[in-house]
Simulated assay, not measured.
Amino acid sequence: MDASPKLTARQQQILDLVRSAIERTGAPPTRAEIAKELGFRSANAAEEHLQALARKGVIELVGGTSRGIRLKSDTLRALNEARNANEMTQTQSSFAKPFSLPLSSLAQLTLPLIGRVAAGQPILAQEHIEQSYTVEAGMFARQPDFLLKVRGMSMKDIGIMDGDLLAVQKTSEATNGQIVVARIGDEVTVKRFKRSRGGIELLPENPEFEPILVRAGDESFAVEGLAVGLIRNQMFL
């Protein structure tokens, strides 16, 4: 794929909107959300632009899901390189003598893959690490700290499938709407976070699954991190 495909102004606007949504919440927007944000009369108009972006190779569309939009890794790298180059140019213009900065998007990360987690132990404890993967930092919206293998199809409607490797930035804080990795006892789950008056709801993105309700003060519950990217496990096979 051309690292810098020629996009129309509207296509670039939609690509920026998709990326912004992923950075903010960990999930892409729906067609209806794109239409509302950009003032389209219907979701079909958003779909037509997404299909054009897919033909140009900058995104991948996953059928049968309302949020089935993926930014391809080389698209993320190109976007990050352009952003870093722009930031470098702005920095250099502030000094009489130019200097060079490393491009973070070209760096490699070694990320541990977390297996089964024991209750009461840190998620990154050595005994929980099954293996490690080396990946390019530019694949992700924000730098992750570990990978978690997705089990089950509770998040399939936003394109998170069984067997995928979820890139996670470790944090104990989350805001409503974000995709989180949460722990309840020795069970780790990926869900959409929602804080309510009675506690916390962990919402699936599949109508076949029920929300998980966590009551206020439940000491077995903890947010372990935020989803910042996704890797199809087949690429490592």
Rank of each mutant, 00 (worst) to 15 (best):
S132N: 07
V223S: 11
L226M: 04
Q131S: 09
V150C: 00
G39S: 02
L53N: 08
G64L: 08
L61W: 06
N44I: 08
Q178N: 15
A82C: 10
L213V: 14
F146T: 10
T75R: 08
E201G: 05
L53Q: 09
N176D: 06
V62G: 00
A119G: 03
R55W: 07
D2P: 15
R70G: 00
R192C: 01
F193N: 10
M235Q: 10
R24E: 13
L76T: 05
K56G: 06
I179V: 13
G185A: 05
D2A: 12
Q90P: 00
R83A: 11
E23T: 10
I59V: 13
A227F: 05
S20W: 03
Q11F: 06
N80I: 14
V117F: 01
R10K: 09
I69D: 02
G185H: 03
N44A: 12
R215H: 13
L203D: 05
E37D: 06
P122T: 12
V135T: 11
A216P: 01
L76Y: 03
A52T: 05
I59Y: 12
T110M: 04
L203A: 08
I179T: 11
P102T: 04
R183M: 05
L166S: 01
Q90T: 05
P204L: 11
L202I: 15
R24D: 10
A46W: 10
V117G: 01
E127S: 14
E48S: 12
S93I: 13
E187S: 07
I160Q: 08
F99H: 14
T25G: 06
F146Q: 05
G159H: 04
R31N: 07
E205L: 11
S154K: 01
I114V: 15
V58Y: 02
I14F: 10
A52Y: 05
S94P: 03
E87C: 02
T110S: 06
G152W: 10
Q13A: 10
